[in-house]
């Protein structure tokens, strides 16, 4: 079988990486504070994702990136320019997302987001889906964090949200990432300062979370979010629906939590 490099994110830096963690469809590597992930072709291209077709992920142990090649388990793969995934949001520059498209995304979240996602911030009726006890307490804290943030108390809001919730990237961090992507999409001058404030208060959480947040802070998005943003800017509502549903399917609630942050921030135009 021939192994072919399909895609490498533009934020995969040069260096010798060490194995960090393994999942069914991804193997994470770290080099200092940088993260790179070898992922299954079924996973979307992303800023730090490397996708090699035919690779048996459980057998992957080493990763090195040097010059224009990626070396996996000692096997070199040349990187052609066409294989570089451009994660920037430059396509949003000078363009505005129509309000009715944001409303449509809100409706989709209310109707189709997974049960325990943060979509209850948009549709309070969804709060019923959480078990009393720990789950309800997590839900309430996330609500408080979001309320504080959108009332203008950025520091306290982000502090309450960061690291709060279920999952490897806790729900609150997915929500914060969604806000930062919205800030980029809005493209206002003051958003850079606001993103810096958010990132200052979202420190810690391990390399996966910190890499995830700093990429969102820099306006770097994966293929699924890119399609969603492009559809919000350009397309008919059916295209938004299809792109959104694919985003909602990421993780247990991660994709929907991120989209909730995106919608909440876009609606407020902050």
């Amino acid at each position: 079988m021939t192994h072919i490099l399909l895609s490498i994110g533009d934020r995969v830096g040069e260096g010798s990486y060490t194995l960090h963690s393994r999942f069914l469809q991804a193997v994470n590597f770290a080099s200092g504070s940088r993260l790179a992930a070898l992922v299954d072709p079924a996973i979307a291209a992303g800023p730090v994702n490397v996708i090699i077709d035919g690779l048996d992920l459980p057998s992957v142990c080493t990763l090195e990136v040097k010059g224009v090649s990626v070396v996996v388990n000692g096997i070199p793969f040349a990187v052609a320019p066409a294989q570089k995934y451009d994660s920037s949001m430059s396509f949003c520059e000078g363009r505005k997302i129509p309000r009715q498209n944001i409303r449509h995304l809100r409706t989709l979240l209310c109707e189709h987001a997974p049960e325990k996602s943060m979509a209850y911030l948009l549709d309070p009726g969804r709060k019923k889906g959480f078990r009393p006890g720990f789950e309800a307490a997590v839900r309430d804290q996330l609500q408080q964090g979001a309320d504080l943030y959108f009332r203008g108390d950025v520091e306290d809001g982000v502090t309450k949200l960061h690291g709060c919730g279920f999952g490897l990237t806790p729900s609150g961090d997915d929500f914060i990432a969604g806000i930062m992507i919205a800030l980029h999409a809005l493209g206002k001058d003051e958003t850079r300062v606001l993103r810096d404030r958010i990132l200052r208060h979202a420190q810690g959480g391990g390399i996966i979370v910190s890499s995830f947040l700093s990429l969102a802070g820099d306006g770097r998005v994966n293929e699924l979010m890119r399609s969603l943003l492009e559809s919000l800017l350009n397309k008919e509502q059916d295209a938004i629906t299809n792109a959104a549903v694919r985003c909602f399917a990421v993780g247990a609630t991660s994709g929907a939590d991120l989209c909730t942050g995106l919608v909440a921030a876009l609606e407020r135009g902050l």
């Binding site: 078990r131 009393p132 006890g133 720990f134 307490a137 997590v138 804290q141 502090t159 309450k160 949200l161 960061h162 690291g163 709060c164 919730g165 279920f166 999952g167 490897l168 806790p170 609150g172 810690g204 959480g205 391990g206």
Partner: peptide
């Protein structure tokens, strides 16, 4: 009665 399986972040420990 209740169960939690979460990462050990400061916020999660508070909850």
């Amino acid at each position: 009665v209740d169960a939690a399986v979460v990462m050990g972040t400061k916020e999660n420990k508070g909850i």
